[in-house]
Amino acid sequence: MSSNIFITGTSKGLGSGFADYYLGKEDKVYGLSRSSADQFGSEDNYQHIQADVSDFDQIKVKVKELLKDVEYLQLVILNAGILGEIKGITDASIDEMKEVMDINLWANKVIIDTLYEMKIKVNQIVVISSGASINGNKGWSGYSISKAAVNMLVKLYAVEYPETHYTALAPGLIDTGMQDYLCDVVDHEAFPSMTRLKEARGTDNMPTPKEAAKRIGDILPALLMTPNGSYEDVRKL
């Protein structure tokens, strides 16, 4: 039996991989992203809407439009996010970090609140976090802070809405376009954690988005057995 799956950030990277994975299982996929997802244009089971996730009013309107006929979602994957610039914490301005927080944290709150406002029953919500949320490596500034806040956001929703299972999930290293910046542009001497990323690129330790989406998708049902609201890392599951 097919399921209704709602995924953000489906135009590229891991979000696109997730959409491809669930469409391959003949599920009905509802995708939301800032740019178009033309790669799924011929898929009857894919419904997409474009929205700027930094525009909270627009997100609310677009989510309501996309899911207007949906009463139940088996799974929601809140994947859309941005990295921001790798720089020292004293060099990162509040405005820069606020932009990252708006997209990585508050946009997710707007989406979740809209689902509850629409009275859509949701079985499972997975918000994509990161190992950066607990590592505290030099240069990750706003990104690490936003993902650490995501972990707590998930925990709070799980306490207040226990009928839905929540997880903040670190997906591991993935070879997306972000790695072009991290591996080839960022100064590795100034920010040593980048060296590990470059060494992992092209190996099994950094799969493609489609490979990563399959690995993660295969284990998402098992997350229902983990504590509601917990932070999990795919590399430890």
Rank of each mutant, 00 (worst) to 15 (best):
M1D: 02
S3E: 07
S3A: 09
F6P: 11
S11V: 08
S11M: 15
F18L: 08
D20I: 12
Y21W: 09
Y21Q: 03
Y22P: 01
L23D: 07
G24D: 13
D27A: 14
L32Q: 11
R34V: 09
S35E: 08
S36D: 08
A37I: 10
D38C: 04
D38M: 10
I49F: 06
V53P: 00
S54R: 11
D55T: 06
F56S: 10
F56T: 12
F56A: 13
F56K: 10
V61T: 06
K62W: 13
V63Q: 05
E65Y: 01
E65L: 10
L66Y: 04
L66K: 12
K68T: 05
K68C: 05
D69R: 01
V70A: 03
E71N: 12
Y72K: 14
Q74G: 02
L78D: 00
L78S: 00
G84N: 10
D91C: 07
A92S: 14
I94R: 02
E99D: 11
V100H: 12
N104E: 09
L105P: 00
L105H: 05
I111K: 01
I112T: 02
I112K: 03
D113Q: 09
D113R: 01
L115N: 02
L115F: 01
L115P: 01
E117A: 04
K121Q: 15
K121G: 03
V122R: 02
V122T: 10
N123K: 12
V126K: 11
S129H: 07
S129C: 14
G131R: 02
A132N: 05
S133L: 03
I134Q: 10
N135W: 13
G136N: 03
K138S: 14
W140Y: 15
S141I: 10
Y143L: 12
Y143W: 11
I145N: 09
V150S: 05
V150F: 11
N151D: 15
M152V: 08
V154R: 14
K155C: 11
P162Y: 12
E163P: 02
H165M: 06
A168L: 08
L169D: 13
L169Y: 09
A170Y: 04
D175K: 06
D175C: 11
D175Q: 15
T176F: 06
T176H: 08
G177N: 15
M178R: 13
Q179T: 14
C183V: 13
C183F: 15
D184P: 04
D187P: 02
A190C: 04
P192Y: 13
S193R: 09
M194A: 11
R196N: 14
L197R: 11
E199K: 12
A200V: 11
T203F: 03
T203E: 02
D204V: 13
N205A: 08
N205D: 08
N205P: 00
M206P: 03
M206G: 06
T208A: 15
K210M: 07
E211T: 05
K214C: 10
R215A: 11
R215S: 05
G217K: 08
G217H: 15
P221I: 13
A222K: 13
P227W: 03
P227V: 12
S230C: 15
E232Q: 06
E232W: 08
R235V: 00
R235A: 00
K236L: 00
L237G: 00
